[in-house]
């Protein structure tokens, strides 16, 4: 199955070609559990999205629960060592990412709908760190 949104475009946005948005309550939970502040949470979201590859894609889901609606792509990413160290997340190195891409004339935006450690490790993905 292919992602709903072109990953190449998503990674380009995360690398600085557009805006990355994180829901305030989602960002708040990241700060409460793992991260120091909102700047770091936002930068972490940007870095994780920028590091995604097709092999991390899990599925596409259509949300219809407020406030989120519409199609999202889900990825599961084991953090590269460098990212895990930078954010002091060696103890939680696998993250579930759910995102959507909004394309507009003003520029593209990636919205991080979910970003948290998965509740269950997927059976089809071995724990493997990329360099």
């Amino acid at each position: 199955m292919e992602p709903r949104y072109p990953l190449q475009k998503i990674v380009a946005v995360a690398l600085g070609g557009g805006e990355v948005l994180v829901g305030a309550s989602r960002a708040g939970r990241m700060v409460a559990d793992y991260i120091e502040g909102l700047v770091e949470a936002h930068q972490f979201a940007r870095d994780v999205v920028a590091s995604l590859a097709l092999e991390h894609f899990e599925k596409s889901v259509c949300l219809d629960e407020p406030p989120y609606r519409g199609w999202c792509d889900c990825y599961i990413r084991t953090l590269p060592v460098e990212l895990a160290e930078r954010y002091r997340l060696q103890h939680v190195d696998t993250w579930y990412v759910k995102l959507k891409l909004i394309e507009s004339e003003d520029g593209d935006t990636v919205v991080c709908v979910s970003l948290h450690p998965p509740e269950h490790r997927p059976k089809n993905q071995k724990k493997r760190r990329s360099p």
Binding site: V20, L21, V22, G23, A24, S25, G37, L38, V39, H42
Partner: peptide, 16 residues
């Protein structure tokens, strides 16, 4: 409409 708040890079800096 839904009241959801978002954090972009500028908002994150100001809020922090």
């Amino acid at each position: 409409a839904c009241g959801e708040r978002f954090v972009d890079s500028a908002t994150a800096k100001a809020w922090d």
